[in-house]
């Protein structure tokens, strides 16, 4: 059983076809990186997988349970809100711009949702949150507000916040694109540690070396289709011309 399964996803914004039939399946413990030029549809795919955006055609499953299936009129039909709400527990998302809650302290950012959405015991959640902060190297920052932290620290808090809900799959949408190279390193280290613990992850990134090092599988997207897919070695050494062009531009 796949943890997450996207089948033949199509999406247009007005007349612009952003996704032209994309299928991605991610198995337990797998780390999948999605790379590709801007406008290739990577972020849209992630937004559809996380239900921030709806697809026009295609299907979406979490843990084998349908979130969206093809209807009789050849359009995607989403499940009822109750079911969707249940399936949302299966994944978390780390944003490019962190999107921490500025009016809440680091600790409260992390425990808000487990306490107020999942209605879990506050004491227990706080203990877990402190454990997560320690893993992120932020044990001394729990009373800080996001604005008092560096970008790298904020992103690590955002990762802790996502992990506090114990998701089965964790998505990253260009997690280091808003960070300078120095801060990028500390965030990538945390993601790498998660990969080593066999956390199932889907990472949209422009960090090629990173994608190459930690991924089980790399997907290269271009103009709304998967142009190239396979192990990091297969993809980075592929003779796909678009892939070569893309890497060439990066190395120049």
């Amino acid at each position: 059983m796949y943890y997450v399964e996207l089948k033949n996803v199509e999406k247009s914004f007005d007349d612009l076809e952003v996704l032209k039939g994309i299928s991605v399946s991610v198995a337990e413990g797998e780390v999948v990186s999605i790379i590709g030029p801007s406008g290739s549809g990577k972020s849209t795919l992630l937004r559809i997988a996380t239900l921030l955006e709806t697809m026009d055609k295609g299907e979406l499953y979490y843990m084998g349970e349908a979130a969206a299936t093809m209807g009789p009129d050849n359009r995607t039909v989403y499940e009822k809100p109750v079911k969707i709400k249940e399936l949302k527990k299966d994944f978390g998302l780390v944003f490019q711009n962190f999107n921490l809650f500025p009016h809440k302290s680091v600790l409260n950012n992390i425990i808000e949702a487990p306490v107020h959405v999942q209605k879990r015991d506050k004491k227990e959640v706080i203990a877990e949150a402190r454990e997560l902060l320690k893993k992120m190297g932020l044990e001394d920052k729990e009373d800080y507000y996001p604005s008092q932290l560096s970008g790298g620290q904020q992103q690590r808090v955002a990762i802790a916040r996502a992990l506090a809900l114990n998701p089965k799959v964790l998505y990253f949408d260009e997690p280091t694109s808003a960070l300078d190279p120095e801060l990028t390193g500390e965030v990538l280290k945390v993601i790498k540690a998660l990969a080593e613990q066999k956390m199932t992850m889907v990472i949209v990134t422009h960090e090629m070396e990173f994608a190459r090092n930690i991924s089980d599988r790399v997907i290269f997207m271009d103009k709304g289709v998967i142009a190239c897919e396979g192990t990091p070695e297969e993809v980075f050494n592929s003779d796909n011309t678009r892939m070569q062009e893309f890497l060439g531009k990066l190395q120049r």
Binding site: G92, F95, N99, H116
Partner: peptide, 29 residues
């Protein structure tokens, strides 16, 4: 920012929970 709504949505908040707990406190300031 729209990202505040989206972050809350991903964390499982309902629309009204998001408004009362996340958006309104920021609006007042």
């Amino acid at each position: 920012p729209k990202g505040q709504w989206e972050a809350a949505q991903i964390l499982g908040y309902s629309k009204s929970q998001t408004f009362m707990r996340i958006i309104l406190p920021q609006v007042i300031k």
